[in-house]
Write a protein that binds this DNA or RNA. Structure first.
Lengths: 214, 214
DNA sequence: ACGTTATGTCGTACATGTACAAAAAGATTT
DNA sequence: AAATCTTTTTGTACATGTACGACATAACGT
C-alpha cells in the first residue's frame, strides 16, 4: 500500500526538520552555543533565513529540539544503568540527572529553566511532562521502592518531590558556579541521600489536585 | 567640610543611576516586563540610548538593579515578620520567599535563574551571596534554631540545603505552571515542612570546601 | 484543463542589544 | 588662561530574532 500524499508530505517535512536539527547540532559543536543563529543555520542547509520558521516556531523551539535529543540519550543511559536495590536504582537516576545537568548546562537551562508558555508544536503539556521519559523512569523506580517497602506513599508525589530537590540542587550549581557549595558531587550526593533518607521515614500523600483552569 | 569633587561626581552618578532605575521601574509597570528596552528607557530620561551604558554594564545589569529593590523589600518584610518559635521563624522565611518568587517571577528569574558570569559592577560574588541580606537572615534564623537545640549542625550548610529545596520548589512552579503540582501553596508547604522535619533529625556537617580555582 | 485554495519559500523591514569610536564636557596641570 | 587629560555622551553600524506579506508551488475541486 503506497503512502498517501499527505503522509508523504509529512515525512518530507519531518526529514527537513531533522536535517535542520542536525545542522544546528553541528553548528553548536563547531561554534559554541551562542554561535547558533537562525541566519547561519539557514545558510548551512541552503535555505533563506525565514524558511526555518516553516519548521520551528521560533528559536526556542530549535533549542528545545536539540535538548530533546540530549535528554533522550540521558534517559537511555539511566535505563541501561540498573541496580539490584531499588533505592540504589533511584540514586542512579538522581546521580545521572545531576551529572547531565552539570555537564550540559545549556540543554538543562532550555528545558528546565525557561518559561514554558506554549507546548512546542501542538503537543500538550500533560503529555510533555507525564510522557516525559525521564519522569516516567523516575516514577517507575519510585514505584519499585514502594512495592519493595522501602518507600511509602503516592509514587507521583514522591517523584515530584525528588524532582524538586534534584532540580533545585542542579540549577543552583549551574546558576551560581562561584557560590561556595564545596565539592559539587558531594553536594549533590548529600542532597540526594538526605532526601531519600527523609522520604523513607514518611508516608507521602498524593498531591492535592486543584481544578486549575485548563 | 565640603564634599570633594570626586565624591560629588560619584554622588551625581549614583543619582542618575537611580533615576534610570526609577524610570525602568515605571516602564515595566506601564508596559510590562518585555516593554523595558534600552532605547525606550533612554528616551524616558532624555538621553541617547548608548548613554545608559555609562550606568549599567548591560541590560541584565538593569534587570538586576530592578530585582535588587524587590528583594530588599522582601528581606525587610521577612525581618518584620518574627516568630516566637525559631522553627516557625524559619518557616516564615521559606513561606515569604516562596510567595515572593511566585508573585514576582520576573525578578526571581533574573536573580536566581540566569547565569552569573560577572559580578555586577565590581562587586565580588562572595559579598554578593554571603552579604546577600536574604541569605543572611536565613543563616541567622538557622543559627537561632541550632542554639535552641531544634536543629543540629553547620548553619551555613543547613541554610544552603534549605535554599536548594526552596529554590527547586519555586523555580519548578514558575517554569512549569501547567504541571499538576496541585495547589502551589500546599506544595510549597509540603516541601518546607518535609525538609525542616528531616533536618531536625540530622546532624548536618559543613560543606566540604574544595580549592576551586579562583 | 483550469481556476481555487492551501502550503512552502523567501525578500524586506523593523526593533533590539551593543561594539566602536568620535565628540563634548569637565577636571587637572602648567 | 591654555593645554592636556579624563570622563561622559552620543552617532553610527552591525548582528540578531522575527513580523509581514509577496511569490511560487503543489493539491484539489470543477
Amino acid at each position: 500500500m503506497p503512502l498517501s500524499v499527505q503522509t508523504r508530505r509529512e515525512k518530507q517535512k519531518a526529514e527537513l526538520r531533522s536535517e535542520l536539527v542536525a545542522a544546528a547540532h553541528k553548528l553548536v559543536q563547531e561554534e559554541g552555543y551562542e554561535g547558533l543563529t537562525i541566519r547561519k543555520l539557514a545558510k548551512r542547509v541552503g535555505y533563506a533565513p525565514m524558511s526555518v520558521y516553516s519548521y520551528f516556531a521560533d528559536k526556542q523551539d530549535i533549542l528545545f529540539a536539540l535538548a530533546a535529543d540530549a535528554f533522550e540519550t540521558l534517559a537511555k543511559r539511566i535505563e541501561d544503568h540498573p541496580a539490584d536495590d531499588p533505592i540504589e536504582a533511584l540514586q542512579v537516576v538522581m546521580t545521572e540527572y545531576a551529572a547531565f545537568g552539570l555537564g550540559n548546562p545549556n540543554e538543562y537551562r532550555t528545558v528546565f529553566m525557561t518559561e514554558k508558555v506554549k507546548p512546542p508544536e501542538g503537543r500538550t503539556f500533560a503529555e510533555m511532562q507525564e510522557g516525559n521519559p525521564l519522569m516516567k523512569v523516575l516514577i517507575n523506580r519510585v514505584e519499585a521502592c514502594v512495592t519493595a517497602g522501602k518507600l511509602k506513599g503516592d509514587p507521583r508525589a514522591i517523584a515530584t518531590m525528588l524532582w524538586a530537590v534534584g532540580h533545585g540542587t542542579i540549577s543552583l550549581l549551574i546558576t551560581f558556579p562561584f557560590y561556595p557549595f564545596g565539592d559539587q558531587q558531594a553536594f549533590v550526593k548529600r542532597m540526594c541521600d538526605f532526601t531519600l533518607a527523609a522520604l523513607a521515614t514518611q508516608d507521602v500523600p498524593p498531591l492535592t489536585e486543584t481544578p486549575v483552569n485548563c
